[in-house]
Amino acid sequence: MSEDRSRKYINPYIGGVLLGFVLLAAFFFSGRGLGASGAIKSAVVKSVETVAPTHVETTDFYKGYKETHPGGPLKDWLVWEMLGVLVGGFISGAIAGRLKFKVEHSPKITSKTRIIFAVIGGILFGFGSQLGRGCTSGSALSGMAVLSLGGFITMAFIFGTAFALAYIARKLWI
């Protein structure tokens, strides 16, 4: 089994070192860490603006966001980074022969159940990432690398809560 495993995925410690170098490159070139949820926020604000421009003009939150992000999504660092993630993930998947449309789930649940819980989980994570000023990449990982207190707190609460709820959610995964 271990041979099969090493063929499929990289050794996790080597993967971690490589990810660390990617993160270091982001700091060195751009003076900032990696992120993900910020790109979604950028796209969401742009979409709301397109659908309901007057609503954006009259809502304090959107006005504030637009003032701090004047260029829109196409000038947003995280949007370009996430487009890169799609390309990089695709290249790796293509090399490893993992490109396939599928719904991955535990044999104990149906695809439909998996999709429903994926949406619920996404809603929670999306909301939490905005409240916590960044997700696992932007707040926890990048925050820890610069020794931000908030990064460590967010990391501890993400993993702590997930561990605490793991027993209840076990059917979804094992």
Binding site: V85, F117, I120, F127, G128, G132, F157, I158, T161
Partner: peptide, 23 residues
């Protein structure tokens, strides 16, 4: 940071991803 982290943790165990890994 604490409440946001806890909500994200609940999302992680329910949805199985975080934003970066989902993309």
């Amino acid at each position: 940071a604490m409440v946001g982290g806890a909500v994200m943790g609940a999302g992680f165990i329910t949805g199985g991803f975080c934003p970066g890994t989902a993309f």
